[in-house]
Computed example of a mutant assay.
Amino acid sequence: MLRNSLLLWPAALVAGAIALNACNPADAKFAKTKSGIEYKVFGKDGKAKEIKPETAEAAYKKNVGQIIALHVEYRTAKDSVLFQSRKQQMGFPVRVPLQEVARKGGLEEAISLLQPGDSGVFRFNADSLSIKTTGQPAPPQIKKHGNTMTLFVKVDAIQNQADAMAAQQKAMQDMQAKAKAHEDKQKPLDDKTIQEYAQKNNLQTQKTASGIYYVITQPGSGPKPTPGQIVSVNYSGKLLSGKEFDSSAKQGRPIEFPIGVGQVIPGWDEGIPLLNKGSKAILLIPSSLAYGQRGAGADIPADAVLRFDVELVDVKAAPPQQPMGMMPGGGAPQGAPQGR
């Protein structure tokens, strides 16, 4: 799965869905800020609110330094859902520090129009929003749906640092317990799905202790990679329906990443080291070792078992460790099935 080059404010907002249809009635008209943001704002009662941006900005400044808890959803011009925080956060809000609005016309200014309990619908020019956020035009996967983006927001609370930290810790504990219970229920279902798929497609699979099924279709004679080493991999990722959601061919080159450091999904960190350099294989990865209950974007649904056809092109030694303070920037490599 390609690492997303997405429109973020900040990255925490796209960790995950809201159903705001009830507060987006057709008879409510968009207003517009001087910077070009089209907006509708609704109060706790679901009725449209008349917002004066200057008054809202003054109220927002009083909250700078506080933590906002909110649910967000991004949609394309064709109303395709890009991100859903309720889904990604299993119903819990994301929490983001409120900062001074540095750039007008972006997501920060949109959020500044809202108070606790408010809901908002904001429409942006996709290119303009991306340039303000990343310095570059909107990526093709967004623009292919049209050159506007709509952001739906529901503000849960605005809290001080201590209250927000306590709420976040409680939410994390609840989320982990909920995720574990779901994973335990999903594992046998995934295992059955994989077995049925293998039988239907005449695949003579082997199985790891964690539940990955694999078939080496072309043995290699080179070394197997070890943790920390850099691997180069050609791959095609598909749902079991046969729909391809990603491939290295789309990038025009193999992808590279270090083994065993969490920069890719767990199924890759475990599955790729099963192969010798030069090997080709099929990896059938249960959802718990892929994108789990959250799924990934519009292409990979929740609880999806994934098939990867892979080729281990190269294995290189781990780079020498650099002194503290001189480490290069982190993040998943371009093209890798990103870790969770």
Rank of each mutant, 00 (worst) to 15 (best):
E196Y: 01
N24L: 06
R75D: 07
T226A: 13
A198C: 15
K44G: 06
P10V: 10
A138I: 10
Y235I: 08
D156E: 11
A28H: 05
M165S: 12
N276G: 03
Y39R: 05
R95A: 14
Q168C: 09
V264R: 02
N24C: 07
P273C: 08
G106W: 04
Q218G: 01
S236G: 09
A198M: 07
Q293D: 15
D303R: 11
D190S: 14
R95V: 11
T205Q: 03
L20V: 10
V305S: 02
K192W: 00
K280D: 04
D184E: 15
P273G: 09
A179N: 04
P286W: 04
K62I: 11
K29P: 00
L289F: 06
L129W: 06
A28F: 08
N201P: 05
I68S: 05
A317K: 14
P10S: 12
G295V: 15
G260V: 10
L82I: 15
G278S: 05
Q66T: 07
P328M: 06
I272R: 06
Y74E: 11
L20G: 15
D156M: 03
K170V: 10
D174Y: 01
K40Q: 13
K238H: 11
V313L: 05
P93N: 01
Y213R: 15
K144M: 14
G267T: 06
E311T: 12
K207M: 11
K185R: 12
S221Y: 02
G120L: 05
V121M: 08
S236F: 00
